[in-house]
């Protein structure tokens, strides 16, 4: 395949960025987009130019590191996948492919396509956990969990923290990510203990990081590589209402 690329280049956090044009020939349709970028980078290095910086880790769709905006959508034109699972057969031969970093001020660009997603880590630190004593794993059957609740909690736990929800949201809202964490733990008995502090803490941190607010457009759910449902946002809202109106101090 012969392909043209328009890729965001930015030398550092403070530098001004720009879209630059690249051309590649003889690309296999079975290569992933990350592998195609690897090929492009080898060419750049051979020509004495600086390689394009991009994040990646597992290359099997479970780590959430390779988030980038491809042809106007997070992780490219398909749904339910990350960038490493996007193959060049998904594009027309001769196509021009736009690649940009997430455009969310809470995820500042470090270089080229790499953004700093530590805002999500600080949201987790603000309550997205359960406090348990470390040590030997407890007996799994000692705390019964209703099957339906376990399934819903699993759906939320599928979130890999890639940031696509905030990247695609017209408000740059991280609500689907935060909701996935709040909903996942609030559905399970181990998580109920800290439910009030969790929803208060994570929502306050989400706002402090400068993410926008949710207007339920549904773009996050449509673009989430793990299909995390917006029902978790509704559940987080309800947890927030309960924590605000009914919880004892």
């Amino acid at each position: 395949m012969d392909l043209k690329f328009k890729i965001w280049r930015q030398d550092g956090p403070e530098a001004a960025g720009r879209m630059e044009d690249y051309e590649l020939t003889g690309i296999s349709p079975d290569m992933s987009l990350l592998e195609t970028l690897d090929v492009l980078n080898e060419q750049l290095i051979a020509n004495g130019e600086t390689a394009i910086a991009f994040d990646h880790d597992c290359r099997e769709g479970i780590c959430g590191t390779c988030g980038m905006f491809i042809d106007g959508r997070p992780h490219g034109p398909l749904t339910g996948i990350t960038t490493c699972q996007l193959h060049m057969r998904s594009f027309e031969d001769g196509a021009t492919i736009h690649v940009e970093p997430w455009r969310v001020d809470a995820f500042p660009v470090i270089r080229d396509l790499v953004v700093d997603r530590s805002a999500f880590d600080r949201v987790i630190q603000a309550g997205g956990f359960v406090s348990v004593n470390a040590g030997t794993a407890p007996e799994a059957n000692s705390i019964p969990v209703r099957r339906a609740d376990a399934e819903r909690a699993f759906d939320a736990a599928a979130c890999i923290g890639c940031g696509a929800c905030a990247a695609v949201c017209k408000n740059s809202s991280a609500m689907l990510f935060v909701a996935a964490k709040v909903s996942h733990l609030s559905l399970l008995p181990q998580g109920r203990v800290e439910a009030v502090e969790r929803v208060r803490g994570t929502v306050a941190q989400m706002d402090a990081e400068g993410f926008g607010g949710c207007t339920n457009t549904g773009a996050c759910e449509a673009e989430c590589p793990k299909h995390v449902s917006m029902e978790h946002i509704a559940r987080m809202n309800w947890e927030f209402v309960k924590a605000t109106l009914f919880s004892r101090e």
Partner: peptide, 21 residues
């Protein structure tokens, strides 16, 4: 106003119509 302030650099190429009405 707050939501707009959360994205100071817009996307060069974006297809919002693919994700929401």
């Amino acid at each position: 106003r707050r939501n707009r302030a959360a994205r100071s650099v817009p996307y060069a190429y974006s297809r919002p119509q693919d994700a929401s009405p």
